[in-house]
Design a protein around this nucleic acid. Structure first.
Lengths: 197, 197, 197, 197
DNA sequence: GATGAATGAGCGTTCATTCAT
DNA sequence: GATGAATGAACGCTCATTCAT
């Protein structure tokens, strides 16, 4: 029971920190701000996490887990042979960043830290790889099922991930004018047009 | 002559700062670090730039200018009707980030700051727009020349930019294993396959 | 109880700063110096005050409060109709700066900052006005009681304050030789000679 | 001839610095600001003065000289036995600060520095003494001439100076509402009422 | 003479971290 | 468990002063 309470607190702090990053940006998140957002004292934060970096890693892992669960859910849903779109995982990715506007901000924030932080780097790398792997598996299965041409799944999946990231970034910059739906639909069409028989 | 010397110093500081960002990441660039990289005293830096942010904006503008000049050069080169690849501007983008490994790091760094810095945001936005516009023009002219299908150039160009950014990011994360050439070639093929008659 | 401890610390810092101003002069008071005088770290100071200016304003307000309480005390004491001296408030002012040698230093220091700091200016103005008002009331009551001639109390009180400030400044400059008692006695005599029936 | 040019430059710099103090306050005067006000380069300033403090001392000396010349002029004018006012030097002092609004600011600025700067202190002291001495002489001569009572001139002159300083300070604080003329007239009346036969 | 580039000490302030209570 | 007082290193920046040109 105590463990659960502790786990709750930890999760509460992680969520507060996530909101903090979304609103202020990674660089402007302070321990004070996290404490404020969490409605706890500064001391309480350091009681559960030994350093700021530890909190950030927990946030990143939480993000990874959240995204993975969505990815996994989609994998389960796309067993129909005809579903070319879902098989690719492109729609899934677009849906992800479409519904949560803040996701790209946080990903880019961590990405920019990753070059000087091996721990961040490896979590991000693993996440990207998991997503590519999902997409790759989908392509392979589509290929095996005869609905896709014979293509290298690893290459296609990289392109799929690139489109999600690249389109997400451009919407980030362009907020108001970006026609997300039209562009994401076209991106899917282009890829499927290439690999579909 | 004196003016030139001053301009040299300014350019020297901007370059030092760029290297600094590449090696340490934006967040870890300090005035002290810039001074060290530039081989000058801290005071000398503030003699030429009134604030750290001013240096950063100069770096970003310099980056913008550099990229634009390459983009412009490519525009001049692609007057042959048959050159489907260059017309799109995809090859150009890939070449850019292929040859300068550090470019993506710096772009992502500034991008992550942009959400809290309108000045950065507008420079980045303008750069992305310039690139999209180049690509868009290429698509339009290809369309007019009858080598491309009738497509919305604005959409295609967004996808082109997305591919360059998204592939660049993945190489950034994957440094050693990423098969940049194979992936970029395939990305081009997919897009051209879609729009070519 | 905890609150009291915090209030103690704040008061401790304010006192340390006051001593600092007395010994070094406003312009030479640094956060480091305040911390040293208070026997705390620099960080501890900013824990209680968000800026140096905030400390200074606290010092000035404390000064104002201290002086006002003396002024008030004197007001209570001067209900005897015959007490021409106390009624004016001149003796009170002289006593004030006579007993605390450092007072004039600090007042002049803040005064010199006031032209560029509206917050200081308004606190000083309010203090001066409170003192003039006390003096003015005394004159008026003396006038009503028939022990003073009919004079404009507002003018007399300004002259009273001027004498306290002007004599205080000259003692400040002249430290050793200044015959404070003889001069202040004569100043009172001159004013009382004018307004007494 | 060269000497004169140099003297001109020095005087030019001193004047620029004086204006600088008036507009910004002593604490905010920088070498850069002086150079700007003087329309010279920073190097030119240090060519004529070896340090910032040296310029300030020159400004203070210039101020002393200016004031002394006015004081001296008045001394010459007040040989008429009947002129009780001028003899005291009170009118002179009031005229001085009445016509040049900025004078009190600068005097207070230097005064606040004086406690930690013996050079400033001695110049200010000497100026105050010169003024007291003038007033004192006037009182003495008035006493000898039989138009004044027998009083201690040293004491009266201190009170005269106190009134000028104290009234000047109050006008400084009160800018808009201060009724300078009425108050200064009354101040004179009070003193003369006391010492006149 | 005159310039302004360059220096570096010192400023106010921020903030992750420690620890007594 | 929980607090927030306290620390001190590091930050961006200012500015009097020096000195090569």
């Amino acid at each position: 029971m105590k463990k659960d309470k502790s786990a709750d607190r930890i999760s509460h702090i992680v969520n507060a920190t996530f909101r903090c990053i979304v609103e202020k940006g990674y660089a402007n998140v302070t321990m004070n701000a996290i404490a404020e957002y969490a409605g706890l004292s500064k001391g309480a934060i350091t009681h559960y996490f030994k350093s700021k970096q530890d909190i950030m890693i927990a946030v990143l892992n939480e993000l990874d887990t959240k995204l993975y669960s969505i990815v996994h859910k989609i994998k389960e849903e796309t067993n129909s042979k005809e579903d070319l779109h879902y098989r690719l995982g492109l729609s899934a990715g677009f849906q992800l960043i479409r519904n949560d506007f803040t996701l790209m901000f946080v990903i880019i924030d961590f990405l920019s830290q990753a070059s000087n932080n091996t721990e961040y780097a490896s979590i991000i790398k693993s996440f990207i790889e998991k997503y590519r792997s999902l997409s790759s598996d989908g392509v392979q299965s589509g290929s095996d099922a005869g609905v896709y041409k014979h293509v290298k799944p690893g290459i296609i999946s990289t392109i799929v991930v690139a489109l999600v990231l690249g389109i997400g970034i451009q919407r980030m910059i362009d907020k108001e004018q970006f026609n997300f739906d039209e562009i994401s639909t076209m991106a899917e069409e282009i890829v499927i047009n290439y690999i579909a028989r």
